[in-house]
């Protein structure tokens, strides 16, 4: 074993900042997706972003969610409209989609971070 004087800094050792820890609250329910398209630019989500999605987060009005629409992952705003849930695109070309009672499973997860390089 190493002999000699102990380093005076030993008592202050902390582990280095870990981005996983900063960005991921629930590792087992967190998935990464790659964003394709620019229509969520208004929400700060750009084409090519690495999207961090947490399935454990309860979907709430105002959150950005990953929805399954016609067999594809699609990014939408979840909103409350006249007492009903609906998925709204940030783009005017796409009509909002009302969610019925059995449509819970359409919401795949809640987007919690979008990561892009500058």
């Amino acid at each position: 074993m190493a002999a000699g004087f102990p380093s005076p800094a030993d008592d202050y050792v902390e582990s280095r900042i870990d981005l996983n820890e900063a960005l991921i609250r629930h590792p087992s329910s967190t998935f990464f997706l790659r964003v394709s398209g620019d229509s969520m630019r208004g929400a700060g989500i750009l084409d090519g972003d690495l999207l961090v999605v947490d399935r454990a987060v309860e979907p709430r009005a105002g959150l950005v969610v990953v929805a399954v629409i016609e067999g594809a992952f699609t990014l939408k705003h979840l909103r409350r409209h006249r007492g009903r849930w609906r998925l709204e695109a940030a783009h005017p070309d796409y009509p909002p989609l009302e969610l019925g009672d059995g449509d819970d499973s359409r919401i795949w997860g809640v987007a919690i971070h979008a990561i892009h390089s500058l």
């Binding site: 969520m40 699609t74 990014l75």
Partner: peptide, 14 residues
């Protein structure tokens, strides 16, 4: 899809 960055599924922003 969960173990390689190059293989992530796409999510469409539209």
């Amino acid at each position: 899809a969960t173990t390689r960055l190059a293989d992530l599924p796409l999510v469409h922003a539209g």
